[in-house]
Simulated assay, not measured.
Amino acid sequence: MPTDIVTAATRSRMMSGIRGKNTKPELAIRSALHREGFRFRLHRKDLPGRPDLVFPRHHAVLFVHGCFWHGHDCHLFRWPTTRQEFWRNKIEGNAARDKKQRAALLDAGWRVAILWECATKGRTRLPFPEVVEACVMWLNSDERLLEIEGDETRAAR
């Protein structure tokens, strides 16, 4: 098993600094959608999964998922080489919980969008105006689900 390049205390401090809400991708999409005239609530505790953005008028919610924490199959996700069992349980548990919460929201009549981190960052990122436009079009539609992820074909360019 490879050794970590930092001490356990340093790694713990680094990991504790990772935010669960108000991340850079979340703040960027919030700002852009607000400029487009959409009004929303943040992190409503009474809804499954505490969605990052809740659009009551459109009966829609938007999650901004980090690819690592939610186990997205993209270039930003790589299984850690240390404490493998812990991380596998953690990430697979997050993904299972996401699926259950998405189903609960859909069953309750909510429309659900997921914006993956790889759509806004890294070599597969999409132009940000396209991401915003996709969200705007979805919010103004009757579609139940939207998932925006990075464009793998961009990585090959």
Rank of each mutant, 00 (worst) to 15 (best):
V131F: 07
T7K: 11
W138A: 10
T81K: 15
G93N: 11
L62T: 13
A156C: 07
T81F: 05
W116L: 02
C118V: 02
R57N: 13
P127E: 14
L33K: 01
W79G: 07
R39G: 14
G37S: 11
L139H: 00
M14L: 11
R83T: 10
R157M: 08
D46N: 14
H65G: 06
H34G: 12
R88V: 13
V54R: 09
F38T: 01
R111G: 00
R11W: 05
G37P: 04
T120Q: 15
K121F: 07
G66W: 12
S141M: 10
R19W: 08
D4F: 00
A155M: 00
Q84F: 02
D46R: 09
R39S: 14
R39N: 10
L76H: 15
N140T: 01
P25S: 04
T120Y: 00
D52T: 07
A8T: 12
I18W: 08
T10D: 07
C118H: 01
A119T: 05
N140K: 15
L53V: 09
E149T: 01
F55N: 01
K45H: 13
N22K: 11
A28Q: 11
K45F: 00
K99R: 15
A104K: 05
L53F: 05
S16P: 00
V61I: 09
C74A: 06
A9F: 01
A113C: 00
I29F: 04
R78F: 07
L33S: 02
R41K: 13
E152V: 03
S16K: 12
S31Y: 08
L42N: 11
P51K: 02
N140C: 05
D142Y: 03
L47K: 12
N94P: 04
V61G: 01
N22Q: 07
G122W: 01
I91Q: 11
H65M: 00
E117G: 03
L105K: 12
V112N: 07
E36R: 15
I29E: 01
D142C: 06
R35M: 10
R11Q: 07
P127G: 04
D142A: 13
D4G: 00
R111N: 04
R11F: 05
I91E: 06
P129W: 10
N89K: 15
K99D: 13
T10V: 12
V6T: 14
W79C: 00
E36D: 04
K45W: 03
K45M: 09
A103P: 02
G20P: 09
A108K: 05
V6A: 12
T10P: 03
W110D: 09
P56V: 11
G122D: 07
W110S: 05
Q101W: 07
I18V: 15
R125C: 15
N89E: 15
R19E: 03
A104P: 03
R11N: 08
C118T: 09
Q101P: 03
R50S: 12
I148R: 10
S31Q: 14
A95G: 03
D4S: 11
N94E: 06
A113L: 04
K100S: 12
T7P: 08
K100L: 12
Q101C: 07
E152Y: 04
E152K: 08
F63H: 14
F128N: 02
V61S: 01
V54A: 14
G109M: 11
V64R: 11
A96V: 05
R13M: 05
D73I: 10
E92A: 12
T10M: 07
C74Q: 05
